[in-house]
Amino acid sequence: MSEWAIETCGLSHRFTPTDAVLQDIQLQVPTGSLYGFLGPNGAGKTTTLRLVLGLLRCQEGSIRVLGEPLESRRVALLRRIGSSIESPSLYAHLSSVENLTVWQKVFGCPARRVGEALHQVGLHDTGGKVAGQFSLGMKQRLALAVALLHQPELLILDEPTNGLDPHGILEMRDLLIRLNRDHGTTILVSSHLLSEVERLVTHVGIISRGTLRFQGPLASLAERNQADRQLTLHTSDNPRALEILLTSGWSARPEQGRLFVQGVSSIQAGALNQQLVMSGLTVFELTPVGQNLEHQFFDLIGD
């Protein structure tokens, strides 16, 4: 089994000669991972995924999927991949069963898989209702059922939670985690909903303006975050607190009636608090800033 479920090397793409949509993307999605592909709208997420699925002709660079070159093994590889790109691709005049039967014939999987896939996404009781009458959330779930139908080794989902209500997002997240944990399915989920991905993925790739800004385990992003952590402080005597902090070697500055202290880990924050209290100051507020993926993300996608 290959180390990488998806591996691109020097992947670049242009829609017009002057417009480089992707530049030198080295995507490495570990086999068995739940990989969050993050980026703001227009960053190049969908273009990358379309290239990985062979929907766009590769102009520069190489793509290997499940250890094999995409270009020469496209059809065989697509048999092992389930995907849903951009808006759900469904036949609006067909029922959910008919929609799945279309793909059951193509994939040649057993007919019982139609019912099983619908059960997995909770759409087993939609009867003869056609997909055109579904809510966006139901369409997303049906698109996921299409992707799951042939029990793929690799699942590529482009913004799968779009249009889902909070309960639907939770269900989708649980389902993806279950698939990853119980069946070992490698899952790549693209999203611009950062909080969504933070609770779901084991690895992240952050893309902005066509370049990959960060890639690795979620834990390493969090570690990177520790070094950049800030604290905001509000005490009974901020000028004196600033003096104490600067004397102790902290990088601190006053701003909008608060103090901002740079590069403080959670252990250091406790010691810092103790030092201020011991100096006779009352600490009204001590707030860590930039601890979640969202702040890290904005840092990474910034110019």
Binding site: R50, L53, G54, L55, V75, A76, L77, L78, R79, I81, S83, S84, I85, E86, S87, S89, L90, Y91, A92, W103, V106, F107, V146
Partner: peptide
Amino acid sequence: QVEYRNNTWKQVHASPQT
């Protein structure tokens, strides 16, 4: 038109068919 109307060409082309 079935494929264009339903925006399903991408799903057809991402299926294992030559």
